[in-house]
Design a protein around this nucleic acid. Structure first.
Lengths: 231, 231
DNA sequence: AGGTCTTTATGATAATTATCACAACGTATT
DNA sequence: AATACGTTGTGATAATTATCATAAAGACCT
């Protein structure tokens, strides 16, 4: 399920500059000491809705999804987090329990700090807290904006948008392996699985993309962008 | 358009306890000195998309909407802010310019601090920054959750949801004056104006609500809740 | 290797929502 | 008072999306 990696490798960690730029080397060493890395396999649940929050999470490798299930048992995907994103953005400082679940959609490595350590640090070091707030704000802003973007489009535009999201933002390549199922795409864009599949088939027939199972190749990006923008 | 109220009335301000619980009386006096209150009339624009952010805003009286316009010129309403909510939640600590506009939907009083003052305070006082972060996180969480709620419902459920939102959350009464037009409701729930109007008429015909122009009376709340929940 | 379950896929049909057209009403402006 | 303009309101029709049915392919388990 998960496995501890005892050796701390913070010296080479990009997060050091992003997250800890206002933490002294001594403090950093302390944090490094208590930091834990956990490895998750694709499909593993990392945190669950309703669980108490006692850890602070950020992404080192892989890709995870944040999701929430409706009281009818359907799943809604809120967002995806890639390396050097905070996974802990919603709820962490405003709630005692998670209001969403986090699940690995690729094999992932997540760095974990006890939340009380982060909170203590935050109460002592204002610059650290400012950094933290800036980062968390930026991440939640992205979620809100992305949500608005998806909301104003219809089916084809939304599917095109998601493909471009993975291509441009997550993988930075025109060919990639979809980390999620058609159903999960549907849960992200708020449409049905069948319509997502149908739309992908249509894009394939129109030679905008090539599909080999989970592998997607964007063949005509400008047309895909056009669909994403104007439907 | 707007008018200065020179006298500082922080002594009686609810925000003092919420916002400034970790600020010393001396500091509070300083802040009080430079704080400005501005009065806006219904319809007045408070901040505009693309403008540089140099002020920190919070609500004292009234109701405002946060909105963003698409590149096709359509408006999307992100959320509403009521008294003692921060208006400055998205962007403030993550962007130099506003990515949304703020407009008064009721006559409103907004308290305004220079952003540099808030940032300076935040860099010096970690507890203050923690408070701030907690409040901002809580506000953005609400936006995300509210968005998911609306997204999973269809037309009737969304309209019912909005009515309950105003009734329960904003006015805490079963009878209230709608602060927004049908079009604005449509912009908030992502449906067309005509369909919002039609749905309201349907609720009226079914004796779930009474409508007198902008005045709404919720006559059968449990049925409205049922529609909001199950469509 | 066989069976079960999920995912991908496609078609037909039903439900939902948008668009267009038009009218009444209120409000603001000149 | 007259005009213009936005809001509210309703109906007919078109477009979009969901639902249901069915099937093949792949993953998983034993």
């Amino acid at each position: 399920m998960n496995q501890r990696v005892p050796k701390c490798s913070c010296e080479n960690c990009q997060l050091k500059t992003l997250f800890f730029s206002h933490v002294s080397p001594d403090e950093l060493f302390d944090i490094c000491d208590i930091k834990e890395e956990r490895t998750y396999r694709k499909g593993d649940r990392i945190t669950s809705e309703g669980e108490p929050i006692h850890e602070f999470l950020y992404m080192k490798e892989g890709l995870v999804k944040l999701s929430k299930s409706t009281n009818e048992g359907k799943e809604q995907i809120i967002s995806f987090s890639k390396p050097f994103d905070f996974v802990s953005l919603l709820s962490v400082f405003s709630s005692k329990t998670y209001i969403y679940s986090v699940t690995a959609v690729e094999d992932s490595v997540v760095c974990i700090l006890d939340l009380s350590v982060v909170k203590n640090k935050a109460q002592q070091n204002a610059m650290f807290t400012m950094d933290l707030m800036t980062r968390i704000s930026s991440a939640t802003d992205k979620i809100v904006i992305e949500n608005l973007e998806i909301r104003r489009k219809q089916l084809k535009g939304r599917v095109a948008h998601v493909l471009l999201y993975f291509s441009n933002y997550i993988y930075e390549k025109d060919e990639f392996e979809l980390p999620v199922s058609r159903r999960e795409i549907a849960e992200y864009i708020g449409m049905t699985t069948e319509n997502v599949i149908r739309t992908l088939s249509e894009f394939r027939k129109d030679k905008i993309i090539k599909i080999f199972g989970k592998d997607i190749l964007i063949a005509d990006k400008s047309r895909l962008e056009n669909i994403s923008e104007f439907g």
